[in-house]
């Protein structure tokens, strides 16, 4: 244990120092892979001195700075923008019923029959197929490295990884670079708009709802099979599989909230804001 801890500490500090930790793209593009990625090592080492200087001289990233008391006063004024709350609340409780009486039982049965590794393989296959969405949005967000990684991952995982069932590309240090259309819109200054809950769908905002529609258009399934059926088919398959993978996690959320609707709304809005902040180079620095 202590060996492990030491290694974790050493690795953690090293990455922070070498600047590997602030390598762009989504959270899966973590520091560890950055070190493993040969294309990065050269720039990482040459940047090390520069960043070490930056660490001591310049103030920390404003987004990560702890808040002071005047900011607390400010944030009490900010409420989650939800003018369509009556509609959303109704949809939210409908979705919960769908979850309780349809999705969860199916997912539980699925979880019993299908071993975990297979569930994860299926998730990877679904993820592999949504490459066009990530590729296009990486390009629009000017994350060229991310776009390249997505192309390379798709090539490797579709062939060597047997239609995406296995993540071969990860072995080569090629991590997925998550990006979607709602995020791209946000990056270019489109505000989230009102919070929006639609039947059978995860939480959205007006902006992310538009993004969701565009993302669906970028999903190859939409064209290969009959569009509507395809959308429904993949959506159900995906949801069942993900639900099965997260059975414990969902219980846990309910246990620790006093008002589930506002908890989910706030969690979604915070998370999206973070994803958009992360996609902006000036904030990421």
């Amino acid at each position: 244990m202590s060996g492990l801890r030491w290694w974790g500490l050493a690795l953690g500090s090293a990455m922070a120092i070498a600047g590997c930790a602030s390598v762009p793209t989504a959270r899966t593009d973590a520091a560890a892979s950055a070190i493993d990625d040969p294309s990065l090592s050269a720039s990482a080492t040459s940047e090390a001195a520069e960043r070490a200087k930056g660490l001591t001289l310049s103030p920390p990233d404003p987004t990560e700075r702890p808040r002071n008391s005047s900011e607390i006063a400010e944030e009490t004024l900010i409420e989650d923008y939800d003018p369509w709350e009556p509609f959303n609340t109704a949809m939210f409780s409908f979705n919960r019923k769908v979850d309780r009486y349809a999705l969860k039982p199916v997912a539980k049965a699925w979880d019993k029959i299908v071993p975990d590794p297979v569930e994860r393989s299926l998730k990877r296959a679904f993820d592999n197929l949504s490459m066009p969405r990530r590729l296009v949005n990486n390009l629009f967000q000017l994350k060229l490295k991310g776009a390249g990684q997505e192309l390379a991952r798709f090539g490797l995982n579709t062939t060597l990884g047997v239609a995406g069932l296995f993540d071969v590309a990860k072995v080569f240090g090629l991590e997925a670079s998550e990006a979607d259309t709602g995020q791209t819109l946000g990056r270019y200054g489109v505000g989230p708009g009102p919070y929006l809950v639609l039947p059978f769908l995860p939480p959205l905002t007006a902006r992310d709802g538009i993004g969701f529609a565009v993302d669906a258009a970028l999903d190859p399934f939409t064209y290969v099979i009959f569009p509507v059926a395809a959308l429904a088919g993949t959506a159900v398959g995906k949801r069942v599989d993900e639900r099965a993978l997260n059975l414990d996690l969902y219980e846990n959320v309910e246990e620790s909230t006093v008002d589930l609707y506002s908890a989910v709304r706030n969690g979604y809005l915070q998370r999206r804001q973070k994803m958009i902040d992360d996609s902006r180079p000036e904030v990421r620095r």
């Binding site: 959270r27 944030e75 909230t257 006093v258 008002d259 609707y261 908890a263 915070q270 998370r271 973070k274």
Partner: peptide, 15 residues
């Protein structure tokens, strides 16, 4: 994952 627990509870309590 980018979600502040305190902010999340703040919105629940406020609601």
């Amino acid at each position: 994952e980018g979600i502040s627990l305190v902010a999340n509870y703040r919105s629940q309590f406020n609601a």
